[in-house]
Simulated assay, not measured.
Amino acid sequence: MAAATNGTNGVHNGVNGSAHAVSRPLTPGIYAPIPTFFLPGSEDLDLEALSAHIVRTANAGVLPLLAGSMGEGIHLTHSERVTLIKTARKALDSAGLTRIPIVAGTGTGSTRETVELCREAAEAGADYAIVIASGYFAGVLAGSKKALKAFWSEVAEKSPIPVIIYNYPGASGGIDLDSDLITELAQECPNLAGVKLTCGNVGKLTRIAATVSDPSFASLYPRKNPNAPFLVLGGFIDFLLPSSYANAHGAITGLANVAPYSSVKLFQLSEAVHKDPSLLPEAQRLQAIVGRADFTIAKASISGTKALMEKLYGYGGVPRKPLPPIEPEAFEALWAHPHVQDIVRVERELSGKIAS
Rank of each mutant, 00 (worst) to 15 (best):
S18R: 07
S219A: 15
N225G: 15
L241T: 03
E349Y: 13
Y166F: 08
A156Y: 02
L76G: 01
V290P: 10
T83L: 01
S263P: 01
A124C: 07
P35A: 02
K158W: 03
L97Y: 00
A330N: 03
F37D: 02
G174F: 02
P190Q: 12
P319Y: 00
R119G: 01
A32C: 12
P319C: 00
D276E: 15
L220R: 15
L323N: 01
T98W: 00
A19R: 01
T211D: 04
V195A: 06
H53Q: 04
A186K: 07
E349A: 12
R81N: 09
E332H: 08
P190C: 14
R24W: 10
K86G: 06
A156T: 04
T36I: 08
T5L: 15
K158E: 03
A272V: 09
A95D: 00
G10E: 03
F239D: 02
K224D: 15
A300W: 09
Q187H: 13
H339V: 07
P162H: 12
G174D: 03
I85T: 13
M1H: 11
A21C: 00
L240V: 01
R345I: 02
S303V: 01
K149E: 12
A19K: 07
Q341G: 07
H339I: 11
A150V: 10
Q187E: 15
P328N: 10
L39Q: 13
S303C: 05
A58Y: 07
A4G: 15
Q187C: 15
I343F: 06
R348P: 07
